[in-house]
């Protein structure tokens, strides 16, 4: 249990304060929820609330740079944030929570029911992170792999592309419940991309499916269901959120729905 709270005034100060038994604290909306036990075990919390210059939203050519401490509500209210990011932020149904929850915090929590990660995976978002060695620009997939391997990083900015189309869907018993599945699909310059957060399982990018769709294969709903029924590398388990069969079926029908939605809307924004 945390007994000490440190208030950092800048990202570099926060990184300097980070020790093995410390965790960064951003908006604080996920700390007490089941599934965030890793952060709850820290002896020291380093609050980022007073770090200046971390809540901006700025256009940068074909991209948008979002400060890691930018709140979900700020995303929703912004005129320059793409619709797909607003849709993902709206998955957090409560406005009072959106006033607190931060973009960087939601990514770094690495929850298997993350609101933003499936969308960020699908649109191939990049992150500016501060490490012991200095500033790095990495893709969100690499961030996840390195964070899970224990590398100490502090997200300072999230970079998302403008001018692309992405759609998402989230399944939960209530607007406030943990989602059994959040899935996103996008049309990027490489072609269609798909990613999903499966509760108690993890975040996945479905590259084999993407390759099949990019090669022009016309997949029916049954094909998609069959693909996910046999998809390897998904460590899905039976739990209170549903059986393995149910979750794989849901992945299939949702992938089909999202690919149809993208096809119907064309490649424009």
């Amino acid at each position: 249990m945390a007994t000490q709270l440190l208030m950092a005034k800048s990202p570099s100060e926060a990184m300097g304060l980070k020790t093995a038994d410390a965790a960064f604290l951003a908006g604080g909306t996920e700390v007490n929820r089941l599934g965030s036990e890793a952060a709850a075990g820290a002896e020291t919390l380093i609050s980022l609330k007073r770090c200046s210059g971390m809540d901006h939203i700025e256009k940068d050519g074909d991209n948008l740079r979002i400060g890691a401490m930018c709140t979900f509500q700020k995303l929703v209210e912004s005129d320059i944030v793409p619709a797909y990011m607003k849709e993902a932020a709206h998955f957090m149904a409560s406005r009072t929570k959106r006033n607190m929850a931060t973009v960087g915090g939601n990514i770094a929590a690495l929850r298997s029911d993350s609101y933003l990660l499936p969308t960020l995976f699908a649109v191939c978002a990049r992150l500016e992170v501060l490490t012991r060695e200095g500033q790095e620009n990495i893709c969100v997939n690499s961030f996840m792999e390195e964070a899970l391997s224990g590398k100490e990083m502090l997200i300072t900015e999230v970079i998302v592309p403008l001018g692309i189309k992405a759609v998402s869907k989230r399944y939960a018993n209530t607007a406030q419940s943990h989602a059994v599945l959040t899935m996103s699909a996008a049309v990027t310059e490489k072609g269609i991309t798909m990613a999903a957060a499966v509760k108690n399982s993890g975040i996945y990018r479905f590259r084999k499916l993407e390759e099949a769709l990019r090669s022009g294969e016309d997949m029916s709903e049954d094909d998609m269901i069959a693909f996910f029924r046999g998809a390897e590398g998904l460590s899905i388990s039976d739990d209170m959120f549903g059986s393995v069969e149910y979750k794989r079926y849901l992945l299939g029908v949702t992938a089909y729905d999202l690919s149809r939605k993208l096809a119907d809307s064309g490649k424009g924004v």
Partner: peptide, 13 residues
């Protein structure tokens, strides 16, 4: 001026 859930808002903030 904005609504917050005070249960997950640290007093020191």
């Amino acid at each position: 001026g904005e609504g917050f859930n005070s249960c997950i808002y640290l007093a020191v903030w």
